[in-house]
Computed example of a mutant assay.
Amino acid sequence: MKARLTWLCLLPVLMLAASVQAQIQTNPAQVDSSEVNAVQGPLVKGELFEYSTGGETYQGYLARNVNDKTPRPAVLVVHEWWGLNDYAKSRADQLAALGFVALAVDMYGQGQVATHPDEAGAFSSQVMQDWPAARGRLEAAMTKLSEHPAVADTGMAAIGYCFGGGIVMNMALSGMPIEAAISFHGSPTQAVKNPQPFEGIVQIHNGAEDPLVKREALTSMAKALKAQGAEVKVVNYPTATHGFTSHEADEAAEEYGLPLGYNAAADASSWQAALLALDKALNDN
């Protein structure tokens, strides 16, 4: 009897669901464009972007919204010490969806990607020990990027992660023609021997618990940038350690025993701050 009562209670609900399903099948909804202001969202596509300098070829990754026919400001994305991997490319894709033309640069040449921390350390150290050559690679990328029809002539900016964060800080310190340099858990090693004036925006997003970034070096870099005229902001995120923006940090920490870790709050906060800075620097907002 109880089972029969349950079935009778459910019967009206089942009949209503069947009626709704029938209406969906026989009368599919049509969007009236005269009543709804429907627009096309971004269609982000990435492509190989090669440039050469010093007899070497570099394989960057260019991301842009192909639905947007208006030239847009360009942002360089400088990879971690691993090389130009999927993480750097995903950040370029995000920037492209938000209205920028993003180039994830290749700092090692031929698109090389390290598979072990020892190899990554060797690659990154070689670049940082020869800043003139590193700058030449960046300048080659920027020159070719500026010629792309999708890029506006309103200036460029650069963001970087870990090793790449150190690169963008040194870009600003050497007075390269960028409007903003934004570092995420970047190494503050000063590779520039002769700092030059720089009046753009510099943001340094750092994990407060990061043992790989020495506080003295970070303070020294911030002071050096400020002395050259930069608008410097350093943000230390409580509980965050190295690699806090990358979902792959936890996996690398476990595999190699490195002091890495993803931190969702620090990732979200630093990304929002970076976007606001890019908007101010490149869109004059």
Rank of each mutant, 00 (worst) to 15 (best):
A172Y: 07
E119F: 02
P28M: 04
T70V: 06
V78T: 09
S270Q: 10
N170R: 10
G229H: 10
Q21S: 14
W82H: 03
A88H: 00
S183P: 02
G41H: 05
N194S: 15
K2R: 12
T143D: 11
D250A: 14
L16H: 14
V20P: 07
N67A: 12
D106W: 08
G46F: 09
Q112R: 15
G166P: 05
A208M: 09
A88P: 01
A191F: 09
E255H: 12
H242S: 04
L276A: 12
Q21F: 13
A88I: 00
A224I: 06
P197K: 07
S220A: 15
D93W: 02
Q110D: 08
A141C: 12
G164C: 07
T219C: 02
Q126I: 03
V31E: 06
G165L: 11
P197G: 10
E147M: 11
D93G: 06
V235F: 11
P12S: 01
K226L: 05
Q21T: 12
R64N: 12
A191T: 11
Q40N: 04
T115W: 02
P259G: 12
L103S: 06
D93L: 04
P28Q: 03
E231L: 00
S174Q: 08
G109C: 06
M1H: 14
A172I: 03
T53N: 09
G229T: 10
T6Q: 08
F100T: 03
Q110A: 13
K45I: 14
S33F: 02
S187F: 13
H185R: 12
G164E: 05
E255M: 13
V105P: 07
R135P: 08
Q40K: 06
V234D: 05
A158L: 02
V127I: 14
Q23M: 15
N263F: 05
P211G: 10
L48E: 15
H185G: 15
E119N: 03
V113W: 04
E255Y: 05
D118S: 05
Y161P: 07
L8F: 12
E35P: 00
A222Q: 09
N263L: 03
L225R: 01
L84G: 15
N263R: 02
V202G: 08
R135K: 15
A277R: 00
R4K: 14
A97Q: 11
P117I: 04
G160Y: 00
L14E: 01
V151P: 10
H205D: 12
L260A: 02
Y58R: 02
L76R: 11
D93K: 05
A120W: 04
D130V: 07
R137G: 04
W271C: 06
V168A: 11
P188M: 03
E35V: 11
L76A: 09
V127H: 08
Y108H: 04
A181I: 01
M176P: 08
E216N: 04
D279L: 13
Q25W: 11
R137S: 09
L212S: 15
F198V: 09
V44I: 15
W81M: 15
M169I: 01
L260G: 01
S19M: 11
A268P: 00
V213W: 05
A253F: 08
A268R: 06
K144N: 13
Q59R: 15
A3K: 14
N206I: 12
N85S: 12
E35W: 10
N283T: 10
V44E: 05
T241F: 07
F100Y: 15
M156S: 06
S174W: 03
D93C: 03
K214P: 06
K280L: 08
V75T: 13
H247G: 10
F163V: 00
